[in-house]
Amino acid sequence: MFVNVYFPFSGFLSTQEAIERRNHLFTLEKKRQHEKVGRIEKIEVRYKGIPKDCTLVMNKGISTPYDCARHLTEWHVDSSALALIDGSIYWDMHRPLNENCTLELQNFTVAEPQQVNKAFWRTCSFLLGACATVAFKDTVPVRLHSFPGPDIRSGSFVYDIDLPTLEDWKPTPQELFTITAEYVKLCRRDLPVERLEVSEELAKEMFIDNPHKVKQVPSIASRHGNITLYRVGNHVDISKGPMIANTAQVGKCTIASVHKLVGPPDGDVKQLYRFQGVALPTSVMLNHFAFSILVNRARKLNPVWSPVGTSDRGEPIVDDVRTVSATA
């Protein structure tokens, strides 16, 4: 249990220590939940799709859609990004199945890929948070704030990050290039995106070094009961999900820009940096010129909802959204 690894001075953790600690707590909790399953029961999963429909007998509470894909072919394992349970519920590839169900595997080229695209965009934001925490030197504390829901038409995925020691930072092209390199390195590590539901107390304990997340945890818990966490490598973050199966499914990507967002003087968040990027799945081949159009668009400030409410140009961002959708 997490009580065993209580740190008395957790308010003074360095970024790296905090990451390791969160990762450790995640591992312990995952192990605990796995052991809680107890006596193994079997469920029947009816698979629909190519090469042919079939029934798989899997372990209740342990087997995931990913395990089902491994019974089929390597192509299913590599290309499936999301599972569709009973024809209606979108399920993470690494989330255990709990009852008899039908299963369809979704990749990026299915006829109706909206949900897969959203999961992809959400995962990209999540990974952006992961690489931003490791991209800075130890002297720069990085406090992740949150990322808005996936909006693909806005042209870029976003993570809002608090950098308390950097007052007025404008990244040079070289710095952006470095963050992009970190992002590519993370994706190439071929890591699974793990999911875990934890209680409110444990989530607070895990994010004790991050004041923003500590504030968000109770409000999320009051709405959804539990807190859903995701892990890639040793990075753990809160997200509603679902997410895609593996970081290797993220192909071409660029971190395009970082914009400063200034909050109202009486608000609890004074300023945030909005990291923006654009990425495509590995299976998508796009001409570099077309991709450069997407990158250029991603350089502009993304007007989706932000926790501080205004951009550094002094305009309220939420209103910006409304003007864009009403007139443009």
Binding site: T109, A111, P113, R153, G155
Partner: peptide
Amino acid sequence: VNKQMNNKLLIQNVLLDAAKYD
């Protein structure tokens, strides 16, 4: 040959369409 690349809902087509619109 993937004949579905013209599907408007594919992520690259959504992004390009939005860029064009912008």
